[in-house]
Design a protein around this nucleic acid. Structure first.
Length: 390
DNA sequence: TCTGGGGTCCTAGGACCC
DNA sequence: TCTGGGGTCCTAGGACCC
């Protein structure tokens, strides 16, 4: 038995590390993976680039100013996904209790593995060397009794290290940290807590629950108190992939240039509706609530949603719903930066029984979609498009 | 030439029902 | 006639995570 059964394994600069396997000549140069053109942001930066202050989510325009000789590599998701699958397989050779958080990180519960493989720290090193040998990338591992402490430990261990935080050391590890380090505390909540004079995790730990809840709300207040004492969950939910099954599916796209042209916008909504509906059909789900997202040139963002009488996975129906929502906004000359389409309330398609309204005949759009799906599978996405997109 | 795209969860108010 | 909870659904926004 072990008192630190939770491992958090996190690949170091995952996308950048994978990209650099193909370009070993670049390892000593600042490299970022991300959309190079126009309005992209950094997906991952290697550690050389980080010395210039380059971080994930930074606009590429700023990156080029900070580090003019940076090398920008376009993301190759197919490769990222396949490396991720192999890494997750490696995890499962250690324990069946793996909770994947994303392509590049997962929690492992090794309670059942210590008899066979030794203490958690040894398991962590074994994982690290296997992944390094098989995939040519490094990772860091945090080991603790609970999920959030393990996660903070892996961050501290980066890059290419392991940190074990035994129960007796949890508070001395956690309490000096800034509140912003806690999971669920982002920029806004950090600023709020700082304004209340709560700077460190220790400050939060020693604040009465009621006070905390008045500041950040009932739910988050309680959550923070647990995080601050390391008494968050230690049970994992084994999951094969990052999200499974999904509660919503959506797609959005930033225009290369802001636009107020209804025709351009409605056509983009069709493209996005087709993308979302297609993914819903391949996942065998349908959904009732359709949401339009609009981001204006000044970056303010609004959403408008509509719940349909019946769940759908039909491109034309989703497109019709978001187009109505868009028209109902009554925009005049407002320039849009981004539009998005999302369908929520997903249920297995098999549970959806369409009731045809009396007097309304089946339009055949669902059949048309399935024909498109078949053609797409045979000839690729470029082969079949709605007429207005050709 | 600032600020992507995929998600999840929480809050809060109003409608509606019991 | 006045006063009430509780629960669920819908909508909009916001914060957060990777």
């Amino acid at each position: 038995m072990t008192d630190t059964p939770i491992l958090h394994v996190d690949m170091d600069a995952f996308y950048a590390s994978v990209a650099l396997r193909e370009r070993p000549d670049l390892v000593d140069q600042p490299v970022v993976v991300g959309g190079g053109g126009g309005r992209g942001v950094v997906l991952a930066a290697n550690y050389v680039a980080r010395r210039y202050g380059v971080r994930s989510a930074l606009p590429m325009t700023r990156v080029r100013r900070m580090c003019p000789h940076v090398v920008v590599i376009e993301p190759d998701y197919a490769t990222f996904t396949s490396v991720s699958s192999s890494v997750m397989e490696t995890f499962r050779e250690v324990t069946p209790v793996v909770e994947a958080m994303s392509l590049d990180e997962a929690f492992l519960d090794v309670r059942g593995s210590t008899r066979r493989l030794g203490p958690p720290a040894r398991i962590a090193e074994r994982l690290r060397s296997t992944i390094h040998d098989e995939q040519g990338i490094t990772c860091s591992v945090g080991v603790a009794a609970s999920v959030s402490v393990a996660k903070l430990a892996s961050r501290r261990a980066k890059p290419d290290g392991v940190i074990v935080v035994p129960p007796a050391e949890v508070t001395s590890f956690l309490h000096p940290l800034d509140v912003g380090e806690l999971y669920g505390v982002g920029e806004k909540t950090q600023a709020l807590l700082h304004r209340f004079g709560l700077l460190t995790v220790g400050d939060v730990a020693h604040t009465p629950l009621r006070t905390l809840q008045r500041a950040v709300g009932d739910h988050l207040g309680r959550e923070l108190q647990h995080l601050a004492w390391g008494t968050d969950r230690s049970e994992l939910t084994p999951r094969a992939g990052p999200h499974e099954p999904e509660r919503s599916m959506g797609a959005d796209e930033t225009f290369t240039r802001d636009t107020d042209d209804r025709e351009v916008i409605v056509r983009e909504l069709l493209r996005l509706s087709a993308r979302v509906a297609g993914r819903m059909r391949s996942a065998d789900v349908a959904g009732r609530t359709v949401t339009l997202k609009v981001r204006f040139a000044d970056f303010t963002t609004i959403t408008r949603s509509r719940t349909l009488p019946e769940a759908t996975d039909v491109t034309v129906e989703i497109h019709r719903a978001v187009t109505r929502l868009y028209d109902a906004l009554g925009l005049q000359r407002a320039r849009l930066r981004l539009v998005g389409v999302r369908v929520e309330g997903l249920v297995p398609r098999a549970t959806v029984h369409r009731q045809l309204v009396l007097g309304e005949s089946e339009h055949g759009w669902a059949d048309a979609d399935r024909a498109v799906d078949r053609a797409t599978r045979r000839f690729g996405t470029a082969a079949v498009r709605p007429a207005s997109l050709v």
